[in-house]
Nucleic acid binder design. Sequence first.
RNA 1: GCCAAGGUGGCGAAAUUGGCAGACGCGCCAGACUUAGGAUCUGGUUCCGAAAGGAGUAAGGGUUCAAGUCCCUUCCUUGGCACCA
Length: 885
Amino acid sequence: MTNERRKPYPFDEIEPRWQRAWADRQTFRVPNPGEPGFEASRPKYYILDMFPYPSGSGLHVGHPEGYTATDIIARYKRMNGFNVLHPMGWDAFGLPAEQYAIKTGQHPRVTTEQNINRFREQLQRIGFNYDWSREVNTTDPGYVKWTQWIFRLLYTSWLDPRSKQARPIAEFVAEHPAATREQIDNVRLAYVADAPVNWCPGLGTVLANEEVIDGKSEVGGFPVERRPMRQWMLRITAYAERLIDELNGLDWPDSIKLSQRNWIGKSEGARVKFQISDFKSQISGGADIEVFTTRPDTLFGATYLVLSPEHPLVDAITTGDAKNTVTAYRASVAGKSDLDRTDLAKEKTGVFTGAHAINPVNGERIPIWIADYVLMGYGTGAIMAVPAHDERDWAFANQFGLPIRQVVADAPAATAGDATCHALPLECTTGEGYAVNSDFLNDLTTAEAKENISAWLNERGLGAKTINYKLRDWLFSRQRYWGEPFPIVWRDGHHDAVPESELPVNLPELDDFKPTGTPEPPLAKSTDWVRYSETARRELNTMPQWAGSSWYYLRFCDPRNGQRFVSVEAERYWMTGSLDPSAIRNPQSAVPHGGVDLYVGGTEHAVLHLLYARFWHKVLFDRGCVSTPEPFQRLVNQGLILGEDGQKMSKSRGNVVNPEDVIHEFGADSLRLFEMFMGPLQDTKPWSTAGVQGVHRFLARVWRLIMEEDQEGRWMLAAAVQAIEPTAPQRKVEHATIKAVTTDIEEMRFNTAISAMMIFVNEYTARAARPVAALRTLLVLLNPFAPHLSEELWSVLAEKFPATPGLVAEQVWPKWDDQWLIEDEVEIVVQLAGKVRDRIRIKKDLPTAEVEALALAAPKIAEALAGQTPRKIVVVPNKLVNVVP
RNA sequence: GCCAAGGUGGCGAAAUUGGCAGACGCGCCAGACUUAGGAUCUGGUUCCGAAAGGAGUAAGGGUUCAAGUCCCUUCCUUGGCACCA
């Protein structure tokens, strides 16, 4: 024998063997409707993992956590007669590949391919039951073609505000024959804008709002600055309302729905126009400042206005005296990064413009200030300041000695007394109450006052109710090489989509794909490629990484289709479960929407990928390209796996666990089983090598339940395994295990499913004779969790005992029979004043009166009562009796 | 600061509708088998106590015959948002 410690069971030999067998037999291949072998009578189940970005460091232990969970359910559903779509692919465009390529001088395509090969091999070594024939890669020209096609669809769509649905731009043109080119471009769902954007010098590209965290890039943590640039934007704001409303029907974690709602940031209020006092505008009609407020009821308490320093009217209204201070202040704000402007802003800053505005309700002349606590990007970039009832205005007013007037009180003025209402407020109150000092609004509740003032403003053309959203349009262009080129060309300063027939627009080959360090994209270096025709030049930006992942779940339905992004039939079948063309769901209905039945991934995509994909999907739905208004019906987030030290895994801490090492030492089944046994899928939980050993030991016990060693140390079928009937207790354990594992898988409680199987094994290990039928039940139940071990043992049993043909993975999931679980006698607890004093065995379902009598007769109870009659007796059938003396 | 989720043995965790707290696993202790054990099997293992018994689910209070579970207050941890008018 070798020096190497003998393995408790030969996982290293059996695991690759069964992986080959599944691949050879195409066990997990699922045909589409119309293809040979498709069985229309079965229900469909589309179960999806968030596909990985194939990084250079390979798989980490977080990947197999979610993947094992979906693998278990996919196998379980298949054994329950579903057509299961369970695919895997690669989100392969993106910054890290490009940065690595720059460092090593290799083309990103080369490194990406290497990384993908490594990821695929690693995933296959864990024994996942993906249908690998459906693998997709977002960088593949056959995929890029359809990403560009969808962009083109956005480009040629507009959102009709009446129906709130996207429609072809041609219909807009038909309805507005006089529309200028500019007006048409202004309604497209993909448009070009000159706007302040998040420019990240460290990455040499602009970033979406969602990619900027605390003023730093999400990738790399480089500082991000605001600068105006001409960029492609997607009009996601047009869908803000639907993106909020249609969350309701989704079976998603509340926390994720909440994140999306918060990110979209709907707030109801009003816009109010303030006339500028003594203002002689050179441009006619520019004499109003419009503010957004959620509290129009406090309009009488507005004692000054504040504009954002970037507000376009600032220059025009600033009066001579204030010019210098205003210019200086604006310059100092412009020099601040977002981080300085928000994070360190303990003290409010701002300057007076010298101008005044007229409060429309009372004609009062109030000063106009500028301050950086007012953001140009939200609302109108201007606010009315009501210091008595807004914390920020309160702080600002106190700092600069501006007037404060209370207009909301806890009680109507008559009750509270004039004195209270007219006194200078001692603190800022932001809650609702009753209007005071507000003329015709006095004594109204906040809600009534809001309605009243809105109507008043509306009648006079001074304002209107508005809904405002925090959500900004999606900045969609990047100054990078490794992304999808836009299917756009420029002529005479105008953009145009290239014809569909020219898709895909492939990336040019470049030797030097480094960012230029300036906002000019690297594609500019490829002069031949840029030149589209004598008069036209290609768009030089590329799409962000989110493009490919915003629709990949659709491509999986029909990944090799060259004619359409997904065939009509395949999309309809996998997204709705129906082959019927009328299977389009109603977006407003409360019934399940259809779509991907279960989507599992991390929470890091709460507002990025999951919002973008919903947006694209809704455009596709509106344009009649897909059958459901939402892509993912049910979403589950797996929790983070921490290092053994309870800290987040990181190279610098040295606590990173590599799944390859775990597989080498304990096998793929142990890795899978441990990741499921650690605790609830959704929880954050630490890694434990001892825990891996624990489940490994369990698998070895399963092995020895069926196998034993002969004299030479060779494994062979154990003599204890016999074709006998199980005893009643064995049968009870068997059926209890079926029940527990089945219900636990349904509820994704994999840790308790495994403990149920451990109880089975403990019970059966203790018996000298082991009925083969019960062991087979165990192997079927165990198969989704430990597929390799269960296949091996299944095949060993099949050599000696006749069995249903095929692999375990091809068996039918067992059903439990409650008849074996019923007991005719139960042990119940007898409590005295809520404390357990005794236990008695009684017949099941005994009448209450008899249970009471038996409980009172229990020795400890009888002793304690000493002949007294108890005040009360509570009987919980078959469980407990509580005697209250 | 705001929002959300959570706090149970030495550790990871269990505990339908309020009804025996700690299933299952790790670790630890003891025993068996072994030339050997970091293998395997058997038993024990919330804490205090020799035992009888008592205490116990972050802390405090409440509802109830009965609270890990429901209600109130406080503390702590994790995640998200962060001048959003």
